[in-house]
Design a protein around this nucleic acid. Structure first.
Length: 850
RNA sequence: GGGCAGUUAGCUCAGCGGGAGAGCGCCCGCCUCACACGCGGGAGGUCACUGGUUCAAUCCCAGUACUGCCCA
């Protein structure tokens, strides 16, 4: 064993420790070990991604869990890998190509995909390396990619199965068309933004020639595809018109006026133009009434042939032209500004174009049933609990999922066509002339299979048998619908069981100013830079401290606090070993009150830490460990050890246990320190869990609490009288708590315990009782002392008055619990005694100096 | 429009029926034989507002005002 250096540079040993953990084989879960598995599937990062603050927190939380349970003897498997991330990855490669002046279409599908694969091999998956820097003990040996061969087989299998069950179907239906992407996207990939548009009122003349109906729209160009005008059946203004027809201006089509409850009489004129092919709401109305669906806008963002004279124009051009023509025809009534919410694509940021398109959908109702029941029954539990409600609300109102995407990078839909024939299967059909569906599946379709596809499904592998279901999912609330709910649904459908029993929602860490942390806003903070600066342990600790049940602003001070703990751990190790503390020994004998106290504190901490892990309260866990190290172990126990009122073997034993407890949170410094403890064997990574075989010792705790209280009072006394810490005070403890450990007090507070504090001593009141300090009359500043005593007396008088007032309230005495009433009575006795003593002191002071 | 959070010390956050806590910052002492990246002492809060329940409310209930997020 080498000697422990004076100072610790956290960044130096980190890579070495990661290598040792990897070499140990302990990160690879062994399905044949016979131990109870503990499995976490990581929220798979995009292969294009790099580690941001959200990942850093999320991954640290998981690493704490996996390390804790690994120490506890569970067969730990933390599933590792990346997502092919269809849109994001394709976009990166397209951007690189654009720099060379090449477009995707120039290359063709095959060659483009080759480029994507080679990009993936060279530049993808950087995040895996970054996870190692954070100290994450993922099973890197089983790293998976959602587009690797086995995974692709699972995806095709799932598609075919769902198709055969009738859940997956192809339909021409209203979709969210993302013009920037040139693809449909799901409802979940759309966000509403408030925009100001021009609301135009257009007059549609009644075909009968008697009057007109005025409709309002922000999408003038879509009037070319109108197939009805709808009014509310209860709207008096239009009651007579229902059943009549109007003639569509510019187009000349005769379209009916229909009644539908969905129409809001208060909006616009109360008459709604119905464009089934280009509005979700209108589409619903049209399906209810069997109206024609006329698509006037195509997937290329241009007007179709059905738009007649406007065919080929872009949407913007058509908008202008139609408006001008309506104006010329005298059909425009009013134009005004109108603020409303419209959908935008999460992906491209462009305004969504709702249109009819032939796509693959998955019906979700049946799949949702068991997933709803799992959470309702508590088999799957959310932390914080309220997110279970969010999950249920969505599943209870679930709609079909558009699973096809018009991209190249992804799982190609396993469907082949030949004329009117359709073949759905994991393999291409026999025979000539079959063409495969060009579309790929929504990336979330494949990530929904993550918990079992990573274990070899559909093959019956040993891993699948042991590592499914997993235990915990730790993730962000933004993907409760996109991912969590779908994993539960797919888990039931294909494994017949839940994928995990706990879902822990990690908070979102905002920028220090409260804005979102984002690269584009320039508000991002790179966790790896923090690791460079402060070390991974400090960053992990700081993030955990920030991890409450609500969103928090990033606070670098928490990372600094982690850095302080790292230093403290380092130095405490030096002291413990210098005093002869060892690791690897059996539980030692407790010889002193200090020993009994720290043993009790350890027992308490082991219990608390275990409970906090079970409750996923990482912030409290970090805080608890911080305070037991700083306050209990270093501030008091090590001081008592230096004063030789505690035992080195106990110090060594307790410190080893504390290092074990701290290890899941701060793996690097604890492993490093452990190596400097004589007798230490192996790594903390696989060390047995912390033990405190003595249980709690309330008597020792009370004694040390008295010691701490009296010591603190004496320190305050010194400070207020400008008495240096080195000056020994003579203190009479006659009225101090009887269990106050005197030898310890003498050593730690630098006092001489005397029987008689002489004439006219200082009185220091305690919570219960008081101590007397001998006075050196020569050093007294009489005026200052008189003032201090006056303040002291006033404080105690106020306390006394408060207690008396409480007891004077008969309702309190009658209704409050007896122990509280008793406590107040005892306070009165103590306060009166203290007052008597203080007043006597003051009289004495006045008398001797008069 | 519906829902969910939040409003506590200068800052970031805990606490959640019986006398307000932490870390940092601030002020004052200490180079005390592990640590000055340290130790000790201290100042600093009508716990957003208004009502209600209770012997007792920062904590429970109702409402108001802001702030953030989700769904439509």
């Amino acid at each position: 064993m080498t000697e422990q250096p004076n100072r610790f540079d956290p960044t130096i040993p980190e890579p070495a420790w990661m290598d040792r953990w990897l070499d140990s084989g302990a990160l690879r879960g062994d399905p044949s070990s016979g131990r109870e598995p503990y499995v976490i599937a990581i929220p798979l990062p995009n292969v294009t991604g790099s580690l941001h603050m959200g990942h850093a927190l999320n991954n640290t939380m998981q690493d704490v869990l996996i390390r804790w349970h690994r120490q506890a003897g569970r067969e730990a498997e933390w599933v590792c890998g990346t997502d092919h991330a269809g849109i994001a990855t394709q976009a990166v490669v397209e951007k690189n190509l654009a720099a060379e002046g090449i477009r995707r279409a120039d290359l063709g599908r095959e060659e483009f995909l080759e480029r994507v694969w080679s990009w993936k091999e060279e530049s993808g998956g950087q995040i895996i390396t970054q996870q190692k820097r954070l100290g994450c003990t993922l099973d890197y040996s089983r790293e998976r990619f959602t587009l690797d061969e086995g995974y692709a087989r699972a995806v095709a299998e799932v598609f075919v199965h769902l198709y055969e069950k009738g859940y997956i179907y192809r339909d021409r239906y209203m979709v969210n068309w993302d013009p920037g992407l040139g693809s449909a996207v799901s409802d979940l990939e759309v966000e509403n933004r408030t925009v100001v548009d021009e609301l135009v009122e257009i007059a549609y003349p009644l075909t009968s020639g008697e009057g007109e109906v005025i409709v309002a729209t922000v999408r003038v160009e879509t009037m070319l595809g109108d197939t009805a005008v709808a009014v509310n059946p209860d709207d008096e203004r239009y009651r007579d018109l229902i059943g009549q027809t109007v003639t569509l201006p510019l187009v000349g089509r005769e379209i009916p006026v229909i009644a539908d409850d969905h129409v809001d009489p208060a909006f616009g004129t109360g008459a709604l133009k119905v464009t089934p092919a280009h509005s979700g709401d209108d589409f619903e109305i049209a399906r209810r009434h069997g109206l024609d669906e006329v698509s006037v806008i195509g997937e290329d963002g241009r007007m179709t042939d059905l738009a007649g004279a406007y065919a080929g124009l872009t949407i913007a051009e058509a908008k202008r032209a139609v408006f001008d023509d309506l104006q010329a025809a005298g059909a425009i009534r009013t134009v005004r500004e109108y603020s409303h919410d419209v959908p935008f694509s999460h992906r491209s940021g462009e305004r969504i174009e709702p249109l009819l398109s032939l796509q693959w959908f998955c019906r979700m109702d049946e799949l949702a049933g068991p997933a709803i029941e799992a959470v309702r029954s508590g088999r799957v539990r959310f932390t914080p609990e309220r997110f279970g409600r969010v999950y249920l609300d969505w599943l209870e109102n679930i709609r079909p999922w558009c699973v096809s995407r018009q991209l190249w990078w992804g799982h190609r839909i396993p469907v082949w066509y030949r004329g009117d024939e359709v073949h759905v299967g994991t393999e291409a059909p026999d025979g000539e002339g079959w063409e495969r569906d060009p579309d790929v599946l929504d990336t979330w379709f494949s990530s929904a299979l993550w918990p079992f596809a990573t274990q070899g499904w559909p093959d019956a592998t040993p891993e699948l048998a042991r590592f499914y279901p997993g235990d915990v999912l730790v993730t962000g609330r933004d993907i409760i619908f996109l991912w969590v709910a779908r994993m539960v649904m797919m888990g039931f459908e294909f494994m017949g069981d839940i994928p995990f029993h706990d879902v822990v929602i990690n908070p979102i860490i905002q920028a220090p100013d409260g804005r979102r942390m984002s690269k584009s806003l320039g508000t991002g903070i790179d966790p790896l830079e923090l690791v460079d600066e402060h070390g991974a342990d400090a960053v992990r600790f700081g993030l955990l401290l920030m991890a409450s049940t609500q969103d928090v602003r990033f606070n670098e001070q928490r990372v600094l606090q982690g850095g302080q703990l790292v230093t403290k751990i380092w130095n405490a190790t030096r002291l413990v070993t210098a005093r002869g503390g060892r690791a690897g020994s059996p539980a030692p004998e407790l010889r002193t009150v200090a020993d009994r106290w720290i043993a009790s504190r350890l027992a308490d901490t082991v219990t608390a830490a275990s409970r906090l892990i079970d409750e996923y309260d990482f912030s409290k866990l970090a805080d608890t460990l911080y305070h037991v190290v700083f306050d209990d172990f270093c501030d008091w126990y090590l001081e008592l050890l230096k004063a030789e009122t505690a035992s080195p073997d106990v110090a060594g034993y307790v410190w080893e246990q504390l290092l074990v407890l701290l290890n899941p949170v701060m793996p690097f410094v604890t492993e490093e320190c452990f190596t400097f403890m004589p007798g230490a064997e192996g790594m903390l990574l696989t060390h047995p869990p912390a033990q405190a075989p003595w249980g709690e010792d309330p008597a020792a705790c009370r004694a040390v609490e008295s010691l701490i209280q009296v010591t603190s009072e004496l320190r305050t006394f010194r400070q207020s009288r400008d008495i240096t810490p080195r000056t020994e005070l003579s203190v009479a403890l006659a009225e101090a708590p009887p269990d106050l450990p005197r030898e310890e007090l003498a050593a730690i507070a630098r006092v001489a315990v005397v029987d008689d504090a002489g004439d006219n001593p200082y009185t220091v009141p305690l919570v219960a009782g008081r101590i007397l300090i001998a006075r050196d009359a020569a050093s007294v500043d009489v005026e200052a002392e008189r003032a201090r005593m006056g303040r002291e007396i006033a404080t105690v008088e106020a306390e006394l008055a408060r207690a008396e007032k409480k007891l004077a309230n008969s309702s309190f005495v009658e209704r409050a619990p007896a122990h509280l009433v008793t406590a107040e009575r005892e306070k009165i006795v103590a306060h009166r005694a203290a007052l008597t003593a203080l007043r006597a002191d003051l009289d004495e002071l006045n008398a001797t100096t008069a």
